[in-house]
Design a protein around this nucleic acid. Structure first.
Lengths: 156, 156
DNA sequence: TTATTTATTTATAATAAGTTTAAATCGTTA
DNA sequence: TAACGATTTAAACTTATTATAAATAAATAA
């Protein structure tokens, strides 16, 4: 984990930003909760455990900064809250999401399933794709216990 | 257009809701601006032209109702505002969007490009898909004038 | 080292989107 | 007509996020 923090630190420095203690605490929370999809408020509460004096606005600013640097992606699943999701290191595409309408769980799909679709869109619509957001809403494997496990995937 | 309103009226009645004048005015605004991606506030302002006495809360409630009935889809392009998009009649899938990061234009892709991807997800992740959201962010054809018009698409 | 500049943070106020509530209204139906 | 349920209005409220001004910290110049 230290090495990831180091790399983020370098990324900040390369744009002449600093990795202040507050920023570092925020990044650590994100790394320690990589599986989750935390809101700014969630992050704030977790950071407060390490650095009780931090302010909410600082968390917002840090998350904004990390979004700019493409360290995290800001997503919105339709409840009025932005969530911040660490970008998989090295991945050039933003992973996809499965949102369960029963239990609310959010799983991730790391594979890029959009390669072909993006080709079609770029050519057919003459649109230069820079980023994408793909979310499926439905019933997750935990909520419909029909055992249909023919395929397998790297989920949750 | 009248026939579409009639069908929406029937849909409301089938769930024992009424098409009140306020609701009708709201639906008409949506139909008349089918190309756009209006926020609740946008809708409110447009409805006010026809029915100046209407309240913002009513517009919100109507849009919520129409969302439940699957007449419109509520989407969020990442600015903190929900937008309401008429579902194409007869289409069982929600269309995709192209958001230009230069000019802010939002174009639609009516074709369903996700058929294969959904099959992979349902089988590989054991997830029953009910709905999807697919948005591409990039540069639209108006903003990068490279003439690369080999393909064609039904856009805006 | 001290003074000065610059970036950053804190605390708080402000804004913006959306929701809730209570009272008024409207359309039925008994 | 009286009463009921659904709906709307207006206003208050909640929640998420952003802006502002003063305080702090770090970096640099003298």
């Amino acid at each position: 984990m230290e090495s990831r923090i180091d790399r983020i630190k370098k990324q900040l420095h390369s744009q002449s930003y600093k990795l202040t203690p507050q920023r570092e605490a925020t990044v650590r929370v994100l790394l320690e909760n990589e599986e989750d999809h935390l809101s700014a408020e969630d992050v704030y509460l977790l950071v407060k455990e390490k650095a009780p004096e931090i302010g909410l606005a600082t968390v917002y600013r840090t998350l904004e900064l990390l979004t700019e640097l493409k360290v995290v992606d800001k997503i919105n699943f339709g409840d009025g809250v932005s969530r911040y999701d660490l970008r998989t290191e090295g991945a050039d595409h933003f992973h996809h999401h499965l949102v369960c309408i029963e239990c609310g769980a959010v799983d991730e799909i790391q594979e890029d399933l959009l390669g072909d679709v993006e080709k079609v869109v770029e050519e057919g619509w003459n649109f230069k794709i820079k980023d994408h957001r793909l979310t499926f809403h439905g019933i997750c494997h935990r909520c419909h216990p029909k055992d249909n496990n023919e395929g397998e995937g790297s989920e949750e």
